[in-house]
């Protein structure tokens, strides 16, 4: 089945859990890192850089906050309205090195009750949605050493 990243260029090494990373960009002039990627201009107001290089972000971080979605979100969230709704968990993760908070859905099976602010988590490849022809891939956060 064809695998398509839900957003092209936001993560790399899809399908290889050891090398899987979110991809940001780093300004060649001031070194500032951006995610989602800034490719044309640096967004540091003190920098007029226009050259930014792709850079992988930290694979681990700590939980800044978390919540869940008990109701089905509207389109364009991909979801089959004929199937019963299964809530998903959303995690905001602080990356130590970049000192930025990045959102993501939690890996399947991770519930809000199983999370705590400050908990160590890791990035893992995930599936957002699939139909008969293709799989849309995404990133998930999962407690370090927690349920696979």
């Amino acid at each position: 089945m064809k695998r398509i990243p839900v957003v092209p260029g936001w993560f790399g090494a899809d399908g290889d859990p050891d090398r899987f990373r979110l991809l940001g960009t780093r300004c060649r002039s001031c070194g500032a890192v951006f995610f989602p990627r800034a490719d044309a201009f640096c967004r540091n107001p003190a920098c007029d850089g226009t050259e930014l290089d792709e850079t992988p972000l930290s694979r681990t971080g700590t939980v800044w906050s978390y919540t869940d979605s008990r109701y089905r979100p509207p389109a364009p969230y991909p979801s089959d309205p004929d199937l019963p709704w299964e809530p998903f968990t959303v995690v905001a993760v602080e990356l130590d090195e970049e000192r930025m908070v990045v959102l993501g859905q939690a890996a399947p099976g991770v519930t809000a009750a199983g999370l705590a602010v400050g908990m160590a988590v890791e990035l893992v490849p995930g599936v957002l949605h699939q139909d008969a022809e293709q799989v849309w891939t995404t990133w998930h956060w999962r407690p370090l050493g927690g349920p696979a």
Binding site: V6, S69, Y71, P73, P74, A75, P78, V90, L103, Q105
Partner: peptide
């Protein structure tokens, strides 16, 4: 909405 299903209440949560 597409990638995270993040409605406004998700942020409020």
């Amino acid at each position: 909405f597409r990638v995270l299903g993040a409605t406004n209440p998700v942020y409020f949560g």
